[in-house]
Design a protein around this nucleic acid. Structure first.
Lengths: 361, 361
DNA sequence: CTGTTAGCGCCTTCAG
DNA sequence: CTGAAGGCGCTAACAG
């Protein structure tokens, strides 16, 4: 492990010059820079991030806070953030809150943040009051994805609109008996995303002049398994909707599975629409309202880097286009029509299918 | 941000004593320890990891190398490793190689490892010769999951056996016309897992005295989409197997989807078995050979911590039970019967279903 | 059991 | 444009 003074000696300059040359700051004559670069390369020299942090007071590490890592949305967002940060030589410290169900999770602590990260990105985590106090005391820049963190920039989609878009599609197709999967237990209502998506459904139904059957509004833990369980109960009754709008694609897949098990054909007997464009949704031909998770991760990273690097010399990225004065960026969503929603009509000869017909009618 | 000397002053002791008390090393009288702890607490003191690293030469950071983060297997493994390391106050530095297809990926570089991590865990990454040289020069302890890294401990499953287990099940059910999804293009054959799973299929078929139809051995990129595409081509021919063994559950889901689209009933017309026990597999009632990804992640973390902490005073974890002298731990796999495989028989009145019947026959 | 004293490797003034 | 020197906050001998 060579150190900066090894390089200085090899290049015949001082350590200060090596430091400057390698970081490209201040002015260094191009000849000496060349010599330094060459020496560093030959010695396989890499500056110690720890020593650099200690001396500079900046760690170039961002804490990435997520309730789970194993679900598609979160893994995709983490991946996008990590990639965006890397381009600016920042690194990710994973902070997995290990939410089980939607209620329990570990808390953010002083110990995991203090002197460790320059900033924080949260992915759909409802921050608790005491955690907010902590962030304030630490003076950490924070950017939230999805669930907002009061007083900090937010990157999200319009969740109510997303569901509304899917619902409108079903209504246009002629459906009036429409259910919803994705309400949450009352105790989980601090989670904004499920709540807003449900709001989109309720408001939309009302505006379309359609009655909401409360027995068709299924609440669960937002997993495919949970939705499947509730759908299974619904299909066992003699009062079944002709369409189900789902708060997420994973839940939609759970609903479809149980529909088929119950002998219903999708989409002939039951139309299903989700939200997300989950990575298996095209394979199962699920009609959905797409959200761009990667764009959200990148925007959050860029926003944070912008504030972090604003004071420093040189290249701070611009704020992502669309980030408003009030610190909110709403990424658009779009309807993606595949096979699982269709116009209501009487029996056809089409084979029952989990997937829905390849094209919609 | 209080420092160690703030605490020392507040507690009326030296910084060395604070350091000792807080780390629980050496001997400190319980009364002074109490005073130190109290002072530290009141000052919200947390030791700077950077300063500690610089002084001790250890970072307590493990590089976690993965080809993707967005796929279930990898996200699950990362999560398990992170959790296991955290218990010993170690942290994860994410190194996402961003493999696209199975061929291209970023390389491991000196810069991302040097002076930054105490060790490395790789998740299914075939290491290149020059990378191996780098690891050697750095003297980094490495533990591999899945795809081995020559000369380092390995935690994996018996991939050939896993497929063999699924295949045996199909054969027991009476199938003889069996296809396979999950071969890979020749250029991707440095990936050991796909290769060994295919080997399990070929050897198993041979030992059962069954003929392998090469047109039924489908190679793809190991995604659900890729498998779906190949299956779709197969189902368009007039020579279709009665069962398809799949190298992964995600591929199995792709295969099932296309089967249904092609008008085949699962499992009545086509039995499907996968490997993994993917998190949606129970929802779609996929019969599969389960592997315990979390156990593998934990075992890899424990193995690495064991060697890392072996010299230091105090609590190094034991090697995971089953880790052999030759540094290989093979985690067992088990058949999980759900609905998508069934005994061959002539037409029943059962409804066509993506999911397969709830119970097998 | 506790205090003193060197660094760890780098960044950052401040001079020149 | 370059060099010298003082920390950054902590750990790790070494004394006592």
């Amino acid at each position: 492990m060579s150190t900066i003074s090894d390089v200085a000696r090899a290049a015949g300059v001082s350590v200060a010059t090596v430091s400057r040359a390698l970081r490209g700051v201040s002015t260094v004559s191009s000849q000496t820079r060349e010599r330094v670069l060459k020496a560093a390369d030959e010695l396989h020299y890499v500056a110690s991030p720890m020593a650099a942090s200690l001396a500079s007071g900046r760690t170039r590490v961002i804490g990435l806070v997520t309730p789970f890592l194993t679900r598609w949305f979160f893994a995709t967002a983490v991946s996008a953030v990590e990639k965006a940060l890397r381009e600016f030589d920042f690194h990710v410290l994973l902070i997995d809150l290990e939410a089980d169900s939607m209620l329990e999770r570990r808390a953010l602590t002083n110990k995991m943040l203090s002197k460790r990260v320059d900033g924080l990105i949260t992915i759909n985590v409802p921050i608790r009051p005491e955690e907010l106090t902590l962030l304030e005391r630490l003076g950490l820049p924070v950017v939230a994805i999805g669930n907002p963190v009061p007083g900090h920039p937010l990157v999200h989609i319009d969740d109510a609109l997303a569901v509304r878009t899917g619902l409108d599609h079903l209504v246009n197709l002629g459906h009036t008996r429409i259910g919803y999967a994705g309400a949450v237990p009352a105790r989980a209502e601090h989670r904004l995303v499920p709540r807003q998506r449900l709001t989109g459904f309720r408001d939309g139904m009302t505006e379309h002049g359609l009655a909401i059957q409360e027995s068709w509004v299924m609440s669960c833990d937002w997993s495919a398994q949970g939705a499947a369980r509730r759908a299974s109960e619904l299909f066992a009754t003699d009062n079944v909707p002709t369409a189900i709008m789902c708060g997420s694609d994973e839940m939609a897949i759970g609903v479809m599975s149980e529909a088929i098990s119950a002998g219903l054909r999708v989409p002939e007997d039951l139309s299903v629409v989700g939200v997300d464009d989950y990575y298996l949704s095209d394979v199962v031909r699920l009609t959905t309202v797409r959200q761009d998770v990667i764009a959200q991760g990148e925007a959050a990273a860029t926003t944070l880097l912008h504030t972090l690097l604003a004071t420093s010399t040189g290249s701070a990225p611009d704020l992502p286009s669309g980030m408003s004065e009030d610190q909110v960026l709403t990424v658009p969503t779009t309807l993606v029509r595949r096979g699982t929603a269709s116009r209501i009509r009487s029996g056809t000869g089409a084979p029952a299918s989990f997937l829905g017909s390849p094209t919609e009618h």
